[in-house]
Nucleic acid binder design. Structure first.
Length: 421
DNA sequence: TCTGGGGTCCTAGGACCC
DNA sequence: TCTGGGGTCCTAGGACCC
């Protein structure tokens, strides 16, 4: 291979990368505070699906819903720092949260608004640092390595250049959105993700390799992105609580308990090693729609209702595919039963589609392969094996109409009997 | 008072082909 | 007749993340 082309990023005379992780502070809640500034400082929780919009009283004051008034299956999406002080966090069921903070204010989620501010903050960052990896609505990675001046010392501070750039980025985000963010900057994504959390909210943390032992090793293993509830509990069972402890553990032991690939990853992560690049573009792998019911539904007794929901999910999925310009070959369904047991079934077709009727029929066939004697709490439909449709955003006349031959080659035969549900 | 909705990636077994 | 690997695709489930 041509030597000039094969410089390895880990090669010793290549300088360390400078990777930033930027995380918006309590993003959804902060966007809501822009709209309702009088709530600043109060415990506020965002979440739930039922209508609990604030009402404006005749005298102009606003009346907000309280957590204690909520009945249903929602969870907290975000809470303000004042609410977190009361022990309510994202992911927590609203009914459970109401026990801890009954007087906290409850607002409904407004994704259109969050998406708007998401675009604003990302554009504000891109003006100063264009190499951005999207990690969802409220966070990004940024590769700062090649930005002029970033490696220059300022006064006696060898990291002065990066810090100055980071402050500029924070200011630009603040100017564009009125919102604060926290930034971590280190040689890689793994460490930066951890670092951005160390000084929240409105924080800035710059770490080098030399800081790993002092700043990273004292942290709980769960702070590592990729160690979740299961792995965390398993590590605790082995007496491994901190990252430093994990780093000191014989990799052979980790491999023995977690398998080769995850075991090695645990060891590397604990030592702060991560060569993943900042990825500026990616294509979706799947698109899905799902819904949890307010009460568990029974396949026979609630057949009509379930059938309507199932059809609506398929319609929404087809519309999403058409709007985003994708076709897919693998249709999948997801069912969650009372007791939270989850089952999936999928079917791969020869010809990709974005057509509602084809999706509905294939999903119906998948449904026939599931035992429906237990009551259901969730139903979902997914399309995988995606490719771009021929004409994105502009489906051929009236959607993707297919010839009869194509259809029969593609979808399972239409059911003779009534569809399940 | 348990546990939303939208995703990604990994594993593991079986089918099928060379 | 029996015995092989390797590679790819498909399916189901599960861990994890925002």
């Amino acid at each position: 291979m041509a030597a000039a082309q094969t410089e390895h990023p880990d090669s010793s005379n290549v300088p360390e990368r400078l990777i930033a992780h930027l995380d918006m502070d309590a993003f959804y809640a902060s966007v809501e505070l822009l709209r309702y500034p009088e709530l600043k400082g109060q415990p506020v929780v965002i979440g739930g699906r039922r209508a609990h919009e604030p009402r404006t009283l005749p005298d102009g004051r606003r009346k907000y819903a309280r957590l204690r008034d909520y009945i249903g299956r929602g969870v907290i999406t975000t809470s303000t720092y004042a609410a977190r002080d009361l022990g309510v966090f994202s992911g927590m069921g609203l009914m459970k949260a109401a026990l801890r903070a009954p007087d906290a204010i409850l607002l409904p989620t407004d994704f259109d608004s969050y998406r708007h501010y998401s675009r604003l903050f990302k554009a504000a960052v891109a003006e100063l640092a264009p190499v951005i990896e999207d990690r969802g609505i409220d966070e990004i990675y940024i590769d700062l390595s090649d930005i002029p001046g970033v490696r220059e010392a300022v006064g006696h501070d060898p990291l002065g250049g990066v810090k100055a750039l980071a402050r500029e980025i924070k200011n630009n985000v603040q100017r564009a959105t009125g919102l604060t963010c926290s930034i971590g900057i280190t040689p890689n994504k793994l460490l930066s993700k951890i670092a951005s959390e160390l000084d929240k909210p409105d924080g800035l943390t710059v770490l080098t390799r030399d800081d790993i032992a002092g700043r990273i090793w004292p942290l709980a293993v769960r702070k590592i992105n990729g160690i979740g509830p299961k792995a965390g509990a398993k590590l605790a069972g082995l007496g491994i609580e901190t990252v430093g402890h994990l780093a000191a553990t014989d990799p052979a032991l980790l491999i023995q308990h977690f398998g080769r690939s995850y075991g090695i990853w645990l060891h590397e992560s604990a030592h702060g090693r991560d060569a993943r690049p900042v990825v500026t573009h990616s294509e979706p792998v799947s698109i899905s729609r799902e819904t949890t019911f307010e009460r568990d539904l029974h396949a026979q007794r609630d057949r009509a209702e379930l059938s309507d929901i199932f059809t609506r999910l398929c319609e929404q999925l087809a519309a999403d595919l058409q709007r985003k310009g994708y076709v897919g070959r693998t249709i999948g369904i997801k069912l969650r039963f009372e007791g939270f047991r989850t089952v999936t079934r999928d079917h791969t077709m020869d010809i990709p589609t974005q057509d509602f009727a084809t999706i509905r029929r294939a999903a119906g066939e998948c449904l026939k392969r599931v035992d429906l004697s237990q009551r259901l709490r969730l139903l979902g439909v997914r399309m995988g094996s995606l490719s771009r449709s021929a004409t994105p955003d502009q489906p051929l006349h009236g959607g993707t109409r297919k010839t009869r031959a194509e259809r029969s080659a593609n979808a399972p035969p239409a059911p003779e009997n009534l569809p399940l549900f």
